[in-house]
Nucleic acid binder design. Structure first.
Lengths: 220, 220, 220, 220
DNA sequence: AATGAATGAGGTTTCATTCAT
DNA sequence: TATGAATGAAACCTCATTCAT
C-alpha cells in the first residue's frame, strides 16, 4: 500500500472532464433517448465513474440542459457572423449559411442535438421552448431576412418567407435526423456529401426567380 | 351524466379494446418516447386498467411492435394503388401520391409513427429495420419509379433519383416531425394546410424540367 | 341464437364438480407448490373456468384447506379400523397397516398431500398444525401402540417407541416424497413395488427381536 | 448503542455480502418456498436493501441456483474423502459417512437445501436434475459401493443395494425434512441427537448380517 | 350456474442518486 | 477528487379475485 513511485494512477486533465462527460452524454442520449440512456453508460464512455458525473452536473436532467444550452449557440453565432460580414448576392449568402450549418452541425456530433430535442420535446417542454426560440426561430429569422432580401432584389421569386425558410432547409434537417436514426441500418448508408450537393441545388431551384412553374402561373 | 343504475365498474368491449389500447399507446409513446411512457398512462387513456393491457398484448414492447407493424402499411398500399391506377402525367401522379400521404398520414395520428421510429431506432434496431424496409424504402422505390418516368418524359429534369426522392418529400416529413415536437410549443402553431401548399409547390419547382438554374448551368 | 336443438352445451354432472376441482388443485399444488400454482391451471385441469372455482370455494387458500382436511382422514380411519379388527401377531398387524398406507396413500394421488404440507408448513402453520395433530401424530400414536404391544410380547426388541415409529415408516414416507419430486427426473424411475417390498423387509428387520428374518431366509 | 457519530446509512462490506445474502435467501426460501419468498425479506435478513441483492445476483432465480450449486458439494466431497481414507470394516465406514452427513448437513442450515429442492423440483427441473445427479446419485453411488463391499465381506446381508441405500438413509433424510416443516410446530420438538442415535442403530440393524446388536445388549 | 374480461394489489426488477471510503 | 457499493422510488408485470354477461 506504500506508494513510493510517483506514478499517478490517473491523470488530472485540466478540466476537460465536464466536456468529455457532455460529449459522452450527447452520444448516449441521441442513441437511446433520454429516458433509456443509463448514466452508467455515459460515465463509461467518458472514462469516469458514475459518481464523478455528479461532481460536475447535478443530475441526468442537468446534463441534458447543459448539452442543449451550450452546444449549438456558438455555431449559430458563426452563421450570424457570416450574414453580418457578407457583401454580395443573397444567393451566395444563403449558400454560405447553409454550408456553414452543414459543416458545423450536420457533419459534427452536434447534429445529435436537434434529433434529441425532437425526441424529447414532449418530456422537456421548457427546454424545448428554449431551443425553439433561441436556436430554431433565431436561425429561421436570420434566413428569412436573407431570403426576403433576395426576393426584393429579384434573385428569388416571391414566396411566403416564413414557410419558404422551413421548406428550404427541410432536406438538410432530414439528413440530420436520418443520420441518427435509420442511416446506421441502411445496407448502403447515405452518402452525405452527394446528398448535400443535390439537396442544396434542389432547394435553390425551388426558390429561384426564373422559370419555376408556379402556383400563380399555372394557367398562364 | 345522471346515473340511476348502480355504476358498473367496467364495461365489456372486447372487440374494440385492442385498437383503443393501440391508439392510446401511440399517443403516449409519441409524446413521451417509448422508455418514458408509462403503461399506466396508456391504460388510463384507453379507459382501462393496467392489467387489461396485458390481456391483449404481451408487454410494452409488444405494444410498440403491434403499433408499427399494423398501422402504416395500409396507407402505403393506398398510395401504391394510386400509382397502379394512374393514367396521365408523372407530375399529376406525384401530386396525387404526396396528397394521399399528407391526408392519410401527416394529418392523422398515424403521423406519430414515423416520429416514434425516428426516436426509437437506436433502441429497437430490428423493428426499425422492418420499418425502413417495409415502409420507407418501399415508399421511396415507388416514388422513384414515378420520378424516373417523369424524367424520361421530360417532365422533370435529370437528377439522381435516389436522392431526389428523399429531398422531394423532406418538407412533408419535416412537417410530420414538427407536428409531434415543437408545434405544440409554438405561439402561432404552423398552419399545416398553407405549409402543404407551399411545400408541394416548392418541391415540384425543385424538380421541374424548365428553367431551374442548375449545377450544370451555373457558369452559363 | 335460437336454440331449437335440445343439445346442452355442457353437462351438469350431479355434483362431482367440487371433487374434480379439488383433484385438479391437488395435482397443481403438488407439482408447483401453493404460491406458484395458478388458479387458471387448476380450472383448466378441472375442465371449468376460473370463475367456477369461486362458486364452490371461497378462494385459493380455501382450496388448500379443503384438500388437506378432507383427503387423508378417511384413509387414516381405514387404518385405525384395521387395528380395531385385528387379531394376531403385532408383526402381522404392522404389516397390514403399512400395506394399507402404501396402497391407500403412497400409490394414490393422495400421496401429494404430505408432500404439499411438507412444502407449505412454513406458510400455513395453522393448517400444518392441524395436519400434524389430526393425521401425523394420530397415525404415529396408533403405530406406537402396536409397536409397544409387539415389544411387550417379545416380537420386537425394546426401542424408544416414539422414535422407532418415525424411523420405521421413514422409508415409506421417503418414497412418497420422492414420487412427487425427483422420480419424474430419474432416467430409470424408481420401481415402487420393489421398493416397498425391500423397505418393509428392512424396516421389520430393524425392529425384529432376534436375527433378522430376511428375504433370503423367509422360508427357513 | 451509544452513537456519537452521525449514523452511517450503510456499511461497505463487499466481500462478505454475497454469502450473507445467500444465507438469508436459503433461510427464506426454505421457510416460505421459492415463489412465496419475497426478495424484500431476503434483503432485510441479510441487512441490506432490495437493490443490493441485484448487485451480486442477477435475480431471484439466480439466487436459488447459486444456493443449490455451491452449498452441498463441499460436504459431499468431505464424505467421499472419508471413504478414500478409510481402512477398517465397512460398517465403521458407513457409520463415519452417515455421521459426517448428519453433522455436516442435517444439523447445519444446509439441511434446508434438500427440503428446498424437494419442494421446487417441479418448478425448476433443470436445477433439480443437477441436484439429483451431482448430489443425490453421487452420494448414493458412494454409499452403494460401501454397502456392496460390506456384503462381500459378510458384514451385511445380501440386499438389492440400489434400494438398500435409499432405505438405509431414509430416516436421516426424514429428519432433515422434518426439521424444516413440522418440527417448529411440535409441542415437544424432536430431539435430533436421540433420533440420530436410534435411527443409525435401526438402520444398521436393518442391513446387519446376523441378529441385530441392539441398544439394550451393547454391553452384554 | 357458468364464463372470462377486467381489475388492482403486490411482487420483481431497474437505475438515478447518495455517500462512505 | 474520484470511486462504486448501497439505496429506494418507480416502473413493469402477474394473477387472485370480482362481476357483467
Amino acid at each position: 500500500m506504500t506508494e513510493t513511485e510517483p506514478t499517478p494512477r490517473w491523470q488530472r486533465r485540466a478540466d476537460e472532464r465536464p466536456q468529455e462527460i457532455l460529449d459522452a452524454a450527447l452520444a448516449v442520449f441521441v442513441e437511446r433517448g433520454f429516458a433509456a440512456a443509463r448514466l452508467e453508460e455515459v460515465a463509461k464512455r467518458a472514462g469516469v465513474s458514475k459518481g464523478t458525473v455528479y461532481l460536475y452536473f447535478s443530475g441526468k436532467e442537468d446534463l441534458l440542459k447543459a448539452l442543449v444550452q451550450s452546444a449549438i449557440l456558438p455555431q449559430l453565432e458563426n452563421i450570424e457572423a457570416l450574414a453580418r460580414d457578407h457583401s454580395g448576392s443573397s444567393r451566395e449568402l444563403l449558400i454560405k449559411m447553409v454550408d456553414a450549418m452543414w459543416r458545423g452541425i450536420a457533419l459534427s456530433p452536434l447534429s445529435g442535438i436537434p434529433k434529441l430535442m425532437l425526441s424529447e420535446a414532449g418530456n422537456f417542454p421548457e427546454l424545448a421552448r428554449f431551443f425553439l426560440e433561441a436556436v430554431i426561430q433565431r436561425h429561421w429569422a436570420l434566413m428569412r431576412r436573407v431570403m426576403e432580401d433576395g426576393m426584393e432584389r429579384g434573385e428569388f421569386r416571391r414566396l411566403p418567407s416564413d414557410l419558404a425558410v422551413r421548406i428550404f432547409i427541410a432536406p438538410m434537417m432530414m439528413a440530420v435526423f436520418w443520420k441518427h436514426s435509420f442511416m446506421p441500418l441502411e445496407e448502403q448508408p447515405l452518402d452525405m456529401a452527394r446528398y448535400f450537393d443535390v439537396a442544396l441545388e434542389m432547394s435553390l431551384a425551388s426558390i429561384a426567380a426564373q422559370a419555376a412553374n408556379t402556383l400563380e402561373r399555372k394557367d398562364s
